[in-house]
Design a protein around this nucleic acid. Structure first.
Lengths: 338, 338
DNA sequence: GTGAAAGCGCTAACAA
DNA sequence: TTGTTAGCGCTTTCAC
């Protein structure tokens, strides 16, 4: 690669007839430089088409404008939106983002963290694959700030969370308010806090309304899990007339099961989901969902990271944001035709 | 940041009682080293918890295991899947990917390219914001290999494309085969090749079938554009009974317009889209679509990049992949209820 | 306010 | 095969 022809700081210095140090100072605006020298430097830099070499800068300055973001699956619209929002926020701070997928796999997550360490990123935002097993110490040991998003971590790091209990409550209240009498909940795996909290919100809402204890089921946060849970109830002849489904993929699964079984939504079965369905305003918008404020979450995470980078050594903080229910003014019924 | 405590190659060398160079050789497996020394080195490295510093490595070796990918909007499922697939493929090659969003904005795209240059990435995969105005020379001038994906570039670089004509033809043939008689096409902006090619495929299919010349409309590849196009035909009382919509967002817009107007799909209006709708197998799966082989595209792009990085200086190549029609075995009718 | 010089951690000549 | 050494391009003391 013919990088030799790329101008370096020395070329700019020569052309502007100043020293290396002066060029660096002008380019970084750190120290004060005689305006006339500065003008010469900037002129020379543009004439030469000088581009800084961040790699060298990072090595010397031991700091990087690159951040890392680690998520389970960028294909999941929730994470896509988080990544997108983080990137937009980071861009405004003139930083770049390395995105890593973990597939909810601890080994891949470990690998991703290693790479981010090796690349010397300035900070990491992570949606941990596990609340107990994810180990961010390779980062924190090196003083690289970490912000957990969506889930907590065993280590004491900054967190951006959503009030899942409130979300579960809001979803359930909506079901009850829309006339459902036998409501149920399909939540995520037992060992995830989000699943437990959303279920707790469901129970709180039922208790508060003096309603009967609804049935619930733990599934795996995947489409098939939601589908299977609903089918099971159908087989057992215990089909509820309202169901709160604790994430987006399972909500799809529930809807699919309903169509397969000729159950009309929301006629026979009211469904409230958690997490936006993709293109929420569009065709899939017939199901009310509790949406997580992804932009606000990303902004909060970016702000925390920026604070830590600028030297804040205070104790870890938690930011808890409240999700809102997105109900619909009209809904659409689906029926199987052929 | 307390990086001072991080072990460097020198620490490993001291502990293994060998020279820096030997450690480097062992760690990179480039040169042959006495197995006993090698064993001492690896032992020392693990004992110390040594992690390589890619930044230093890049600076010295003028090469990087980081690639960049530049897309218009990671929120668009087509690009999400491309990014995901590129990452998976890159991961297998032990490389990391910096993702940049351009928002179809040339300035942001330019900025993204500058950053990637500054970060010294080893290669870039780009879905160009424009086929004419996007300038990748900052990369190519420095010998950084570039692969364009989804759209061509004015510069001679490797390209991974989809046969849009064949896609448009397949979509239209499906409409005709399913009994539509007055078919129409909503395609993208006049100045994009994809839009022109998909429309061309539409026309070819009509001509081949000896059908009447279908009407068509150029829109902006956004949801509202598709919606508006259909509404216009409705107003003009020229509603077709089959429509080929040339991208995913516009397809949603068309569906939305149909529901708003009480037009049943596919009863009154057959729709065939282009690009997968999100979670294609799920609820949104009632519309057959021409899907682009994102995984194959990503694999091809990664393979081309890897070849270039390993020194291939041959002329630019094009890889053209054929999209497939995903029809459905059953379809689902939507009707407005409330 | 400016310049000279010393590295950041690593790899790749070149010697031995 | 192994070690010594000279940088990669930049920032940042430290003198002036």
């Amino acid at each position: 690669m013919n990088r030799a022809r790329t101008p370096r700081i020395a070329d700019v210095a020569r052309r502007a007839r100043v020293s290396l140090a002066t060029v660096s100072r002008v380019l970084n605006g750190k120290s004060t430089v005689d305006p006339r020298l500065a003008a010469r430097v900037t002129a020379a830099a543009t004439e030469l088409g000088y581009r800084p070499n961040h790699v060298a800068r990072n090595l010397r300055a031991r700091s990087s404008t690159v951040w890392g973001i680690v998520v389970a699956d960028i294909t999941n619209p929730f994470f896509t939106r988080i990544v997108r929002a983080v990137q937009d926020a980071a861009w405004k701070e003139r930083r770049t983002v390395i995105v890593c997928n973990t597939d909810e796999d601890l080994d891949r997550e470990r690998g991703a963290i290693d790479v981010l360490v090796a690349e010397g990123v300035g900070g990491v935002i992570i949606a941990p694959a596990s609340e107990t097993a994810t180990d961010v110490r390779p980062l924190t040991d090196r003083g690289i700030p970490v912000v957990a998003i969506d889930r907590r971590l065993p280590t004491a790091v900054d967190c951006v969370l959503v009030d899942n209990i409130a979300g579960g409550r809001a979803a359930t209240e909506h079901l009850l308010a829309s006339g459902a009498r036998h409501v149920a909940c399909i939540t995520g795996p037992r060992d995830t806090t989000t699943a437990r909290e959303r279920l707790l919100g469901f129970r709180q809402a039922l208790a508060a309304a003096g309603a009967e204890r609804g049935s619930f089921s733990h599934a795996d946060y995947r489409e098939e899990g939601g589908r299977a849970a609903l089918l099971r109830w159908i087989r057992q002849d215990r089909l509820p007339d309202g169901v709160f489904v604790a994430n987006n993929l399972m909500t799809l699964g529930v809807l699919r099961a309903a169509y397969e079984q000729g159950i009309s939504v929301p006629g026979d079965l009211r469904v409230v989901g958690f997490d936006e369905l993709p293109w929420g305003g569009g065709v899939a918008g017939r199901v009310p969902v509790v949406v997580q404020p992804t932009t606000a979450m990303a902004d909060a995470a970016v702000a925390m990271l920026a604070r830590r980078e600028s030297g804040d050594r205070g104790p870890a903080r938690n930011v808890v944001l409240t999700p809102r229910l997105h109900a619909l003014d009209r809904s659409v019924k689906l029926t199987v035709v052929a």
